[in-house]
Design a protein around this nucleic acid. Structure first.
Lengths: 185, 185
DNA sequence: CGTAGCCTTGACTGATCTCAATCAAAGTGG
DNA sequence: CCACTTTGATTGAGATCAGTCAAGGCTACG
């Protein structure tokens, strides 16, 4: 919470977000961290931060010294580490593209598909659904739209029997349809 | 132009863009490089690219092997290098925030203010104006809106005597007004 | 002149935001 | 156990923002 520098974290359990708060109260969530994530690769290299990191509900962190961590990661993972960095960069580019060139509905759908994939890799998708501890307001700040509009799009998806979000769980019901909506294969 | 990997460039003269092309023809320009810029810090660390780099008109590049470059940069710049990386990350975050939470006009204005600042540091602002070799279409792809809308906003700025873009040159006439419009001091 | 590329303009449509009301669920204090 | 409040979700109506389509205009250039 708040400013951090020189240290670096891993999320053992729980979720977290990294966001910017504008003077007029608008907020943009830049990243969302899921259990097992490495928080803020930016901080591996950087001292100060113009953003805030906040955990959602209960979370359990492991803290490291960033320089030692960086060296350790390089040493143990080598190429894998570079591939991981690559993935971060790619995610960033894709995010910008989504925001700049895709309509809200598309963005929302792509977010959920991507999130499901990330969770699946970690074995956190059980029985076709996964935990999703964000409120609609946070979801809105994440995909760059209004709470109201976010809610409407969610209800569209629900009505179309493509995706549900209830009691903190998301269930993707129609992957094909969503992929089509999201402009994927 | 096209795919690159393992190599890395510096722009001696001329401008360049880094962009993604979507299957339906939409384009998002992710970065714009001005004379003196280091192209694609991403490529310092990454092998493959999901994007394209393209120079605008005439440009003059210096090519380096990325690993050797990385080591050399670390060695010669040390902390300065990290500060540079930090700036890149910050730019990325700000960009995303602009796209997610700021209306088109604000985005456009902020882009020009930021660009002027970058050019100023390199001594490329002469007599209160600077070269700007992008067509309106590219500008639109950069700030994430339609050519038409971009043109309209530019003409608004021109009518308000705040900024002009003529014959490949930008002149910021009213910094205070623009900063206000852009939500800066 | 004629053409091509780019910019400008107008009219219209659609997407998204704003404001405001209602509703449901969950906590709180008596 | 019951008001009462709080928080978050849903819905509707209207305004505003930004995109689409299409026409006209300006330059540069052959």
């Amino acid at each position: 919470q708040g400013e951090v520098a020189g240290r670096v974290f891993t999320l053992r359990t729980g979720w977290a977000t990294r966001f910017v708060l504008l003077p007029d109260g608008r907020r943009q969530i830049l990243d969302i961290y899921i259990p097992g994530d490495f928080i803020c690769y930016q901080l591996l290299v950087v001292r100060s931060a113009g953003f805030t990191v906040q955990t959602l509900s209960d979370a359990d962190l492991c803290e490291f010294d960033s320089r030692r961590m960086l060296d350790a990661l390089r040493l143990t993972y080598g190429d894998t580490f570079e591939r991981w960095i690559e993935e971060q960069f790619q995610r960033t580019d894709e995010r910008l593209t989504d925001f700049g060139r895709r309509p809200a509905a598309e963005r929302l759908v792509r977010f959920f598909l991507d999130l499901e994939h990330r969770l699946e890799v970690r074995g956190l998708v059980t029985d076709g659904s996964f935990e999703f501890p964000l409120r609609q307001e946070q979801l809105a700040d994440l995909v760059g739209m209004t709470v109201v509009h976010t809610g409407r799009l969610l209800s569209d998806l629900r009505n179309a029997k493509q995706l549900t979000l209830e009691r903190g769980r998301v269930r993707i019901q129609d992957h094909d349809a969503l992929r089509r909506l999201g402009g994927l294969g």
